[in-house]
Design a protein around this nucleic acid. Sequence first.
DNA 1: TCTATCCAATAAGTTTTTCTTATTACAAGA
DNA 2: TCTTGTAATAAGAAAAACTTATTGGATAGA
Lengths: 303, 303
Amino acid sequence: MELRRLRYYVAVAEELHFGRAARKLSVSQPALSQQIQLLEVEVGVELFLREKRRLLRKVELTEAGSFFLQEARKILQASNKAIEATRRIGLTQKEVKLGTYRMMIRSRILDILTVCSQRFPDIDLKIIEFPTHLAVQDALIEGQLDLGVSLLPLHSNQLDGIALKPGYLKVMLSTTHPLATENSLRVAQLRHEKWVDINRPIHTVYDDIERMCKKAGFSREGAIVQEVSSIELLSGLVSLGIGIAVVPTFFDASGIQGVVCKDLINDDGSPFTEVVINAAICYKLLNLTPTLQALANAFKSYT
Amino acid sequence: MELRRLRYYVAVAEELHFGRAARKLSVSQPALSQQIQLLEVEVGVELFLREKRRLLRKVELTEAGSFFLQEARKILQASNKAIEATRRIGLTQKEVKLGTYRMMIRSRILDILTVCSQRFPDIDLKIIEFPTHLAVQDALIEGQLDLGVSLLPLHSNQLDGIALKPGYLKVMLSTTHPLATENSLRVAQLRHEKWVDINRPIHTVYDDIERMCKKAGFSREGAIVQEVSSIELLSGLVSLGIGIAVVPTFFDASGIQGVVCKDLINDDGSPFTEVVINAAICYKLLNLTPTLQALANAFKSYT
DNA sequence: TCTATCCAATAAGTTTTTCTTATTACAAGA
DNA sequence: TCTTGTAATAAGAAAAACTTATTGGATAGA
């Protein structure tokens, strides 16, 4: 038997609904049905009342099923506890230095701190901020850091990393901007705008954006009225109506007063994915311990 | 975390030797090394003392490792107990009728009974013997049986089954036979022998064997001095020197006085696998419950 | 009673994970 | 130094799990 199946089983048994349980597990409904069937065969017993050709459409537990639910919960809990306790005993490294860069989104940093304190309570995570994502990579190579969040590509083969979900671009506008009523925007609709943006030296996709505009028949050259060093500052300028900006899709602007974000779309209405911002959790290969790897994995799945 | 990794871990931690543990688990050594590494990353801690570039080549547990071993044992035990107890509660069917055929090897039947009583102690397994493997299939269709062991192919699409390991042919000789000193035999070496065999109506590969002999330049026609109805009787005749016989490789003749078995090989020395005897655990699709499926799986992996 | 909707099961094909067979690298013993 | 034993690594094969699309049965509303 495998714990995956127990996790799936517990989800279905708690929801009593395959569709909902599947959503909760971020898995498709057929995958879930299959795994539950396999589990039933493994145990050799029907866990859900389904035999009656679903006369009542409700999913219900059999007697054996509800017993098994209790046991499954215990086993899952025991395995989590075992990992935690083992970690506590075996941690060689109590302090981990994680490098971030100025442009990095505050909410991501918060997420990371949260995950760490929950899943690795004995690790003391020190966040060290660098001016640019490249400075993070340098610091990793020089051994000043254990882990770093940076943008791809990595500029040394001493480094490696785990990619996070790729980010695309969205448009940030003042709520009073004429285009703020649109659902989504095509690049061409931005041709006569004033822009604000991040300082070129820190910028990883400046040229990509320029290329994107050229393709749509205009240029931002001369239309960029101000450059700043952080995305938070940028949103300030946008909210004041100084200009519009493009920001990564993973930047959450919902808490920021006076700005709205609009999806960028192609002419056919499909999402615009030509410009990609790839971030990763990276480390120096020589310094990679199981602990750091486990941490990196944990961050990956939560960001 | 997955239980597979825990099982692997316990094996290595008990053996303190990757190679031996791998053999015990019927898995290759690299697979085991990989899974253990993944487990270490998952837990975030080194479980084995390996970092020291193996100055002593011995595999040793870290402190965290031996704690984790205890926990892993507990979890595995709990999951086995959970399945057993759930089975006990949920079993809908206490009696299972399993059909076998006369030619079937006694030791296999014993294996099956053993597995059942160990893994499904609440099930009362009734063995019913039929004259031929075809009679087993008929009885399944008529609903007289829950499961059956039979030879492939299945003669109805109402039936399905799980194939067992394929069997090939080996030669059974009297210990006093001139060829009994050989290590292995080519078909052509048997051209002047007298034969005993199973009754044609029960025989599934009679024609295959005849074809095999023809290929080697002779025929058994006329050289078959007696036909019998069970493989045990057959070995009796062989031990008396009445003739030689071909039997399935999975037939264990080591307990039978006065006979030896020799592998059949091709001219190039490779094993002769042209004639295949395919057995399967089968069932009627309509009557298939999770319990029967679980039983069938259990038998499959033990035979 | 018909139609639309909801839901789990099934089917087919893809992706991910695990496993296998080399091969390597290192230590220890002859 | 050469051989042997052992675990780690690499690369490709096999198995397991997952995806989307479809089916079929059951309910609810027209």
